[in-house]
Design a binder for these strands. Structure first.
Lengths: 325, 325
DNA sequence: CCGGTTTCTGAAACCGGTTACATCCGACGG
DNA sequence: CCGTCGGATGTAACCGGTTTCAGAAACCGG
C-alpha cells in the first residue's frame, strides 16, 4: 500500500497539516521541521494522491477532448496538437472518441466530471448537452463545429479557401461539379459548399451536384466514383476530405480514366498521402487547431469566462496534379 | 454548484447511505423509498461525482497509454485501437505523449495516479520507473517494447517479415543494402535488422550498412538519400518505417534516380501514403496492437496478475513497385 | 402475545488530501 | 515582570462519495 500523508506525519512526528505545508513550499515552517518532514517523505517515497488533492482542491489538472473518430490523419493531428500544448500547461489529457455511439452523451458527462475543461469537436454530442454543461460552469471550447451562445470556438477558414478552390477548378474549364459529402454530416462542409456554390453561380453554364456518403473514407470515395462511372462523369469531383478524394482517384485510375485530362479531383486537409498522390487540396493547420483550442481552454479555466472568442485559422489552397498542371 | 449526495438525501428525507443504495440498484430498499429517492435524483439532476466515487472505491475506471509521439499514422492508429477497446470496456482513456521531454518520468508517475492501469509504448520512460510501478502493484502492459520481467507485453512480429523482406530484396538482385534507422532508437529495429542480417549472410557477396537518423520522418529520409547521392548509391534502402522510406523516395525522385530501376526502397508499417507511393513495406496491424493491449490490460486489472503473457501479432510483407515488378 | 428473523434504514468511519482557525510558544517593548 | 505580538504547529472541518455495522420496524410461527 502506498504511504498516505498520515503515514508521513506519523513517521516525522508532526501533523498532516505540517506535511502538507512542507509539500507546498509553504512558509512559516521552521527549518528543522521542514528537514524532518522532507526526510520522512523521502524515506517513505511519498507522493500525494492525485485523487485526494483533486477532491480537496476541487480541480483536476486535467483537460479533455472529444472527437468523432481518430481514424484518418486529420483528427490524429488535431489531437496531437492539443495534447502537446495541454501537457506543456501541466495538464493531463483525457480523450474520448464517440464513434457515433449512442452512449456518447453519457460518456461525455462522465468525462466532464474528470476534468477542468473540455474541447468538443465536430458532430459528437447534442447541443443541449453542451449547453447544460456550459450552464453548469464547465469551461468549453468548440472546435471545427458551429458556434454556441457564449462558448469560445476555434475553426479553420472554410469560405476563403473554398472560393479559391472553386475559382481554380472553374479556371481549369470544369463546369459540371460534383461535391462529394453531405453538408449535414460535417459542420464545415456547409460553409465550403456554400462558398463553392456562390463562386460557381457567377460562371454561366455551371452545374453543381452534391452526393452524400455514409462516412468520409477511401471506400466511400471509391463507391462514389464507381457510381459516377456507370453514368456520366462530371468535370470535377470536389471532395469533403483527402481520403474521399484519394478513394475517388483510385477508382477512376482503376477504370482507366485520365485525371486531370478527363476529370479533376480535389480534396481537403492536405494529409501526407495527398502529397504522394499529387492531390490538389486545401491545407488545414491541423496541429494549430488543436493547440489553439488547448490554449483557449486553459485561459477560460484559469482566467474565468470573459466575452467568448471565436478564432478562425487560415487555410491555403495547394494545387497539385489532379486539377491540371 | 452541482448537487451532492447529501443534497439528494435531504431533499428525499433519507440518509446518504440510502441514496447510495438506490444509485447502485442495491436490494433491500423498499419500493416507496426507492421511488422517493429516484424522484429527488431526477429533480436535482444529481450525478454522483466521479472523484468521490474513485476515492471511496479506490479505483478510477480509467486507463492510460504512454507513447513517444502522435505524429505519423502509426501511433495514431495504435492509440485509436486502444481507445476504442478501452471505451467499450467502460473506461476513460488518458493519453500522454512524452516527446522526449525530460519531465516524462514525472508525468508518467502523475498519470499512474489517475488510472487503474497503463500501456507503455516504445522508448518513453526508463525501465527502472516501470519496474517501480510494477512493484507497487500498478497493472502494466508493454507495447512494441522490450519485455520486462513479470510484465505482460504485446508486439508485432518483426523477425518473420523482416526475413521475407530481406529474401525478397535479395531475390531482386540487390546486394548492397542500406538499413536506414539506428536500432538503438527503436526497440523493434534491433530485431528487424538482425533478421535482415541473418538472411543477407546466407547470400555471398552481400554487404549491409546501417545509417542512423535523429528521428523517423520524411525529412530524415530525404537527408539520408541526399547523403547517399553524394557518394555511391546502395542497391536498396531498407527503411525503419514508411515515412523515412517516402522521404528517401522523394529525394531520389528529385535527383532523377530510377526506383526500382537503379535502387530499391522499402518501408515498414504500411501507412496510407505508402499505397499511393507504391511503396513496398510490411503491414503492421496497428489498431489490433492497441486493442490487444487494452484487452490484456483490462484482464490484468480485473483478474489480477497471473503468469505474464507475451502476445505477438502477425505482420505481412506487401510488395509494391518500389522493389521491382 | 412473545421471541426470533428478516428487511430496511441511518449513523459513522473511511478514502487522502487542503486549509481555516485555534493554540502554544518565545521574544519584545513598556 | 507582564501584556502583546507573531511565528510555528496542531485540530478539525471539509471535499463527495461507499460501506460496515447496528438498530428499528415489520413479520413470522408457536
Amino acid at each position: 500500500m502506498r504511504p498516505t500523508i498520515r503515514d508521513v506525519a506519523r513517521h516525522a512526528g508532526v501533523s498532516i497539516a505540517t506535511v502538507s505545508r512542507v509539500m507546498h513550499q509553504h512558509e512559516n515552517v521552521s527549518e528543522a521541521t521542514r528537514e524532518r518532514v522532507a526526510r520522512a517523505v523521502a524515506e517513505l517515497e511519498f507522493t500525494p494522491s492525485r485523487l485526494g488533492r483533486s477532491l480537496a482542491e476541487r480541480r483536476h489538472a486535467a483537460n479533455a477532448i472529444v472527437f468523432p473518430d481518430l481514424s484518418g490523419p486529420y483528427y490524429a493531428e488535431v489531437v496531437l496538437g492539443y495534447e502537446s500544448v495541454a501537457a506543456d500547461l501541466g495538464r493531463s489529457v483525457l480523450i474520448l472518441s464517440t464513434h457515433g455511439r449512442a452512449a456518447a452523451p453519457t460518456m461525455v458527462e462522465e468525462m466532464a466530471d474528470r476534468c477542468d475543461g473540455m474541447v468538443v469537436m465536430g458532430r459528437t454530442v447534442p447541443d443541449a448537452l453542451l449547453e447544460r454543461l456550459h450552464a453548469r460552469g464547465m469551461p468549453l471550447v468548440l472546435l471545427a463545429r458551429p458556434q454556441l451562445a457564449g462558448i469560445d470556438s476555434v475553426k479553420a477558414d472554410n469560405t476563403g479557401s473554398a472560393e479559391q478552390l472553386a475559382a481554380h477548378v472553374l479556371a481549369q474549364g470544369a463546369r459540371r461539379l460534383t461535391l462529394v459529402g453531405d453538408p449535414a454530416m460535417a459542420p464545415d462542409l456547409g460553409e465550403r459548399w456554400a462558398a463553392v456554390g456562390r463562386v460557381a453561380a457567377e460562371q454561366a453554364g455551371t452545374t453543381v451536384t452534391t452526393v452524400a456518403t455514409p462516412v468520409f473514407d477511401e471506400a466511400a470515395g471509391r463507391a462514389v466514383a464507381r457510381t459516377a462511372l456507370a453514368g456520366t462523369l462530371p468535370d470535377a469531383f470536389v471532395c469533403a476530405n483527402d481520403e474521399v478524394a484519394l478513394g475517388v482517384l483510385s477508382a477512376l485510375g482503376a477504370a482507366g480514366v485520365d485525371v486531370p485530362g478527363q476529370v479533376l479531383v480535389t480534396g481537403w486537409d492536405d494529409i501526407m498521402a495527398a502529397r504522394y498522390a499529387g492531390l490538389t487540396t486545401v491545407r488545414q493547420p491541423m496541429r494549430e487547431l488543436g493547440g489553439t483550442a488547448a490554449r483557449l481552454l486553459d485561459e477560460v479555466i484559469t482566467a474565468g469566462r470573459a466575452e467568448p472568442r471565436h478564432v478562425v485559422l487560415p487555410t491555403e489552397l495547394v494545387v497539385r496534379t489532379t486539377s491540371g498542371a
